[in-house]
Every structure is written in C-alpha cells, then in structure tokens.
Simulated assay, not measured.
Amino acid sequence: MIAAGEWLFGMNSFGWRFSAAVAGTLSILIMIRLVRRMTGSMLLGCLAGLLLCLDGMHLTLSRTALLDIFLMFWVLAFRTRDWRLGVALLGYVAGWLPWIYFALANNRTMYLFYTAPILPFMVLTVTLMFPERAAVALGVITLVTAANLWWLHPILTAETIPYAEQQARLFLLPGE
C-alpha cells in the first residue's frame, strides 16, 4: 500500500505517507459501519468513530509510513458475525496480556498510551456486554479519551517541548 503512494507521488515523504493517511481515514468509516452493524445503533457507531478520531495512536500512525495502520485497517475490514463479543473480548485481552507480562516479568515500565490500539476492542466489548448502559459507559470512555489526547497532544504530534514537560506529560508528574 505504501508502494501505491510512492507510485502516485514519487519517492518522497508525501508519497510514503499518503496511503497511510488514506488507510487511517477509511478505518474511521469502517469502524463506524462495523459498530453500527454490531449494535444497530447509529449513535454508538458515530461515537466509536469519534473515539477512533480522538485516539492519539491512530493519529500518529496515520501520519507516518509504518505498517501498523494498514494492519489495523485490514483487521477492521474483516467482518464479524455471531461471534462478535468473543472477538472483541479476545482483542481486548490480547492487547493487555503482553503489557502485563513484560511489566511484571522484566520489571519494565508500562506506558499506558502505547496500549491505545486496544481502545476499539474495549469500546466494542463494553457495548456488546452492557447494551442498556452502553451510552453512559461510552460517554465516560469518550471523555477520558479526549482528555488523554489533549494531555499527550504535544508528544503525539512531535511538538518541541522542554524535557521536563515531556516527562511530566508521560508520567503524570506535577509541572515544575
């Protein structure tokens, strides 16, 4: 897919990143359609699309020429049917288990914002497990996600900030 962008626009940074930006944009529409099909609710579908728009990792991956955004695009494009709750729950658990293992086994620091790709699975799991309370739960998730994007925005968009501020934003430390 990156080669298609290079073919259209040449071997430059725009050509490398073009197809990633297209895949990131289309994945938002696919997420909306997928959640609408799974829940039957236009509101929840649009909310899932909004959450994906606000996701800092999705924003970052859509701007770079890495393969992760294409993997997410094709996973979202894969259609789920009767086993949809199991798939959503499996995706959520599979996203957390490696982080917990490496944090405990190797005594590593676990950066929470790196687990952002599991956010869509968390939204789908909450929606499918608690359909009567899904709007309240997803409203809270949306507010937390928006606050997270606001807090990490300078880091995710590679703004030049002092080292102390970067550490404060990454580790939730009080400002100096």
Results as ranks from 00 to 15, higher is better:
T142G: 02
D68K: 01
I28M: 02
A147V: 05
P117I: 00
L143S: 12
I118C: 04
M110A: 06
W96Q: 13
P131V: 01
T25I: 07
G10S: 10
F121H: 01
L128E: 00
W83C: 10
G56T: 01
M31A: 14
V140Y: 01
R81G: 14
A88D: 06
L143P: 07
A88E: 02
W150S: 09
V22N: 08
V136D: 12
I28V: 15
R37D: 15
R79G: 10
W74T: 15
T157F: 11
W74I: 13
G49V: 03
L112C: 05
L59S: 02
R17D: 10
M57S: 05
W99R: 09
A105Y: 11
W96T: 09
F9R: 03
L29H: 08
V144H: 06
V136W: 13
E6V: 14
T25K: 01
R33C: 10
M42A: 14
R37M: 08
M57A: 14
D55Y: 00
V75S: 02
F18K: 04
P98G: 07
A48Y: 00
T125R: 03
I161S: 03
A134L: 03
C46W: 13
M129K: 05
R33M: 10
V126E: 05
M72P: 06
I118T: 09
G10L: 06
L54Q: 04
R79Q: 11
T142Y: 00
A77C: 11
A116T: 00
A65P: 12
V22A: 14
L89K: 05
V126A: 12
L52K: 02
A20L: 06
G49T: 03
L170H: 03
L138F: 05
A20I: 03
F171E: 12
P120E: 01
L170I: 13
L173C: 07
R36L: 02
N148K: 14
L104V: 12
R81Y: 11
W7L: 12
I2C: 07
A48R: 00
V75Y: 01
G10C: 09
L67R: 11
R133M: 10
V140A: 09
A77Q: 14
L143E: 05
L112V: 09
A137K: 12
T25N: 10
M31E: 14
R79S: 07
Y101I: 13
F73Q: 03
A137T: 11
L47Q: 09
M122H: 15
A21Y: 07
V87W: 11
P98K: 04
G45L: 00
S41M: 13
A135W: 13
M11L: 13
T125M: 00
D55A: 08
M72Y: 11
L59A: 07
I69T: 04
L52M: 04
